[in-house]
Structure formats: C-alpha cells, structure tokens
C-alpha cells in the first residue's frame, strides 16, 4: 500500500518521518482541538495503526516499533479515548441487573442513529451507494482484523466463542468467503478500486475514526473489554440494516456481487449478534466483572461513532439531492 497524502501538520510529520529517514521519529506538539473528527489527527492515527496491519510499500517493517511514533500514537490515543469517554459518558446504561448482555441490549435498543440504511434502501442513488461503499472501505477491507488482536488476551469460554465468530468472519476455511474479500468483490463490482487503502485520501475524518476506534480497542490489552463491547454493538446493529442496504443495491441495479456482501451479513450477523452478546461479552464479564464497564463503553462508542458518520453521510447526500432537484 502507498502512503496516503497528508492532511495537516500531524500526518505530515508521520509521513515525513516514515519516508525520509530510518531514524526514530522526533516529537511534535498536538494542538488543543478535538481529534475525534479531525482529519489530520485521524489520518495520522490510521497510518500509525496500519504499521501493525499491512504496512506501506516504501516503509521499513521495523518502523512498527519506532519509539518516537509509538509515543505520538499514545498521545493521540489518550486524547481520542478521553473524547470518546466524555462523549458517551452520559449514555444511560445499566438497569442494575449486573447482566452485561441485558445492559448491552438496553443500550442498543435506546440507539437512535440516523436512518442511513433506510435512506440507502428507499431513496439513495447509485452514486450515494458507491459513496457509502467507498467510505466504509477503510474499515471493511480489514474486517474483523482488529478483533483478532484480542484472542490471545482473553481465555476460556469467551475466547472459544470469539474464535468461533472470527472463523466465520474469515470464511470458515474458504478464502473466497473471507468477509474482507466479499467486500473487495463488492467494491470491484461497483466500479471501485478494491486495493487495500485505495480510498484513504478520499474518506472523511469520521470514517477514519470509526476504523481507528476498533484499532484503539484491539491493540491495547487494557481495552479488551471495550473491543468486545464494540464488536457486540456492531454485530447487533448490522443484520437488519444489511437487509435494507442489499435491497437498495438491487433497487438501483448494481451487480449481484455488491448486494451479496450485505446478504451474507443479514444471516451471519444474526448469528454473530447472539454469540457476541452472550457467549463473548456475557462470559468475559462473568469471568472478570471489572471488564463490565468497558464492555458498555465499547458498545456505546460503536453506536456513537456510527451515529456521527450516519448524520454526516445523510447531510452530504441530502445536499446533493437538493442540488439535483
């Protein structure tokens, strides 16, 4: 993968230190502005995370453990996590039953995210759907990879259930059924570039933030509870929207391979929702009750970022509809 284009001083610093030198990256001051919806900060974080996934063509592989870059990553992560905790801190959770899957369901039921799937189902043009796929590509082309980092960090029943879920995400032994491959097939069928990182320059700060939140949780053992809560909320809010999105894709006449990705998720995520809520999060918190609060934090983060992204996309698309009419 090629390095993306800089979006400001922080990403310029990261890209510059990766391409220009083999020396450890120097320090950089981060301004006081929020990083959550800042394209420059989120791109910098995305690049730093990618060193742990696929890396970049022109970057030496040992830069993954460059102490200067890790220091910057820690600074950005601390800010990002703080902003997320502040944003979702007021989310009403907990009926006091102590049953984390019931609390997760309560949180998910209270979610009033903007109706992106309904728009894609009934109203969206072919271009809107293509735009949606492009924005999602920064996370879906590494679908399930952030959660795999959690496997060695948990044990027992929760570990077995996560492995079971991931095996399905990874195609159940059939490479052509890897969910990230199905998404690449969908991109290609929609006339888009399916290569990893092809649209990093084009996607919004919030699309990067959605992808980065999963890496934030997946790459830190401390946040394993949040990673699993995020997974549960993601799976539990996927099956019904996937059905609507598949119908929208068929309505505008895009090829079957585009809808196929979403059809697969109608069925798979109806399963994964139950596995993630009960067999992963339920058993994880049973084993270690101190993780309960972070499971809920992770779930609330997933819903919060999805809501922000949804509002952004609907606003963008409704503006285009007005211009067109």
């Amino acid at each position: 993968m090629q390095l993306p284009r800089e979006r400001g001083p922080i990403s310029r610093h990261v890209i510059g230190s990766l391409v220009r030198t083999q020396d450890e990256a120097g320090p950089i001051a981060i301004g006081a502005a929020e990083v959550l919806d800042d394209g420059d900060a989120q791109l910098a974080l995305w690049i730093l995370y990618e060193l742990h996934y696929r890396g970049f063509d022109e970057v030496a592989e040992d830069r993954e453990w460059d102490l200067g870059l890790l220091r910057l990553r820690k600074t950005l992560e601390r800010r990002f996590e703080h902003e997320l905790r502040r944003a979702v801190g007021s989310v009403p959770v907990a009926s006091g039953t102590g049953d984390v899957s019931a609390q997760l369901l309560e949180l998910i039921a209270a979610d009033d995210s903007p109706p992106v799937a309904a728009f894609l189902h009934r109203t969206a043009s072919r271009e809107h759907i293509v735009d949606f796929l492009r924005e999602r590509s920064v996370q879906q082309l590494k679908e399930s990879d952030p959660q795999s980092f959690v496997l060695p960090r948990i044990g027992g029943a929760a570990k077995a259930a996560l492995a079971e879920l991931q095996y399905d995400e990874y195609g159940g032994g059939r490479p052509e059924r890897l969910h990230s491959t199905l998404f690449a097939d969908a991109l290609r069928a929609a006339g888009l570039d399916d290569s990893y990182g092809a649209y990093t320059d084009d996607v919004s700060a919030l699309s990067l933030a959605n992808a980065n939140a999963m890496s934030l949780f997946g790459l830190q053992r401390r946040l394993r509870g949040a990673a699993m809560g995020h997974l549960a909320a993601f799976e539990a809010t996927s099956s019904v929207p996937a059905r609507k999105i598949a119908a929208g894709i068929e309505r505008v006449g895009l090829p079957d391979a585009v809808a196929a990705y979403f059809h697969e998720h109608v069925e798979a995520d109806a399963v994964h929702e139950q596995v993630a809520l009960h067999d992963i999060c339920g058993r994880l918190v049973e084993e270690d009750p101190t993780l309960g609060a972070d499971v809920l934090f992770g779930a609330a983060t997933c819903l919060h970022l999805a809501a922000l992204s949804g509002a952004e996309l609907l606003e963008r698309w409704s503006g285009e509809l007005e211009v067109a009419s």
């Binding site: 079971e164 095996y167 399905d168 159940g172 099956s239 019904v240 059905r243 109608v266 069925e267 798979a268 995520d269 109806a270 399963v271 929702e273 139950q274 596995v275």
Partner: peptide, 24 residues
C-alpha cells in the same frame, strides 16, 4: 456452512430456516 447457525424461531424470517433478524 457455519461453525454456529441461528435458526428462525419466530416463523417470520425471509430466509428460513435461518434467522434474518425479522423478529426485531
């Protein structure tokens, strides 16, 4: 074809025998 499957119990699924979350 999956390690674990969800079988429809509400009778309303459009993909029976598999659950498609219509119960929601």
């Amino acid at each position: 074809t999956r390690p674990v499957v969800a079988v429809c119990a509400c009778g309303m699924s459009g993909r029976k025998p598999w659950c498609d979350s219509t119960h929601k």
